[in-house]
């Protein structure tokens, strides 16, 4: 490995480290699962330990969308718009059976899995998953972010021509 490639890789590691430890979710809850998500930020479960306690009311300031609950077809355009409003880099956790696959609602009005509308990084199954499930999901996401190779996202230009 050349010196420059090694420098790029280690700089990418620093970037990933910074990103993974401040994954700010957007305040976005759809159904019963949202209550478990809220509980995850209480002192008992303390999502702040993972740098994700800052639920931002504006999608412009967030990195993560936790799709917590049932996505109805009426809500789908709004969900997609909020996702599009989030700046890169952004990730998505599908939290709960409903967001993963439609769950118990095999009906005319429910989207059968939010991955039909937006790309999902981590699936957390359960109805509802316990807050520990969300924490596990965030840890999994952090591992995924930490492993992102250089050049995956065109956000940071590194001086020797690579993108981070």
């Amino acid at each position: 490995m050349g010196v420059e490639a090694a420098a790029a890789a280690s700089l990418q590691e620093v970037i990933n480290w910074a990103r993974k430890n401040s994954v700010w979710p957007v305040t976005f809850g759809l159904a019963c699962c949202a209550l478990e998500m809220m509980v995850a930020s209480s002192s008992t479960y303390d999502i702040a330990r993972f740098g994700s306690e800052v639920f931002r009311p504006s999608p412009r300031q967030t990195d993560l969308m936790i799709v917590a609950g049932t996505v109805t077809k009426k809500m789908a355009p709004m969900l997609k718009r909020i996702y599009e409003q989030m700046p890169e880099p952004k990730w998505v956790i599908a939290y709960g059976a409903c967001a993963c696959s439609g769950g118990i609602f095999q009906t005319y009005n429910v989207v059968q899995g939010v991955d039909q509308i937006i790309p999902v990084d981590v699936y957390v199954p359960g109805c509802p998953p316990r807050p520990e499930g969300l924490l596990k999901g965030i840890i999994t996401l952090q591992e995924k972010i930490a492993a992102e190779p250089a050049g995956q996202r065109n956000l940071v230009s590194l001086p020797w021509g690579n993108n981070g």
Binding site: K73, A76, P77, K80, R81, E84, V111, Q112, Q116, I117
Partner: peptide, 8 residues
């Protein structure tokens, strides 16, 4: 069973 199309 059909894929859902959501167009903004």
């Amino acid at each position: 069973g059909q894929p859902l199309q959501v167009c903004l």
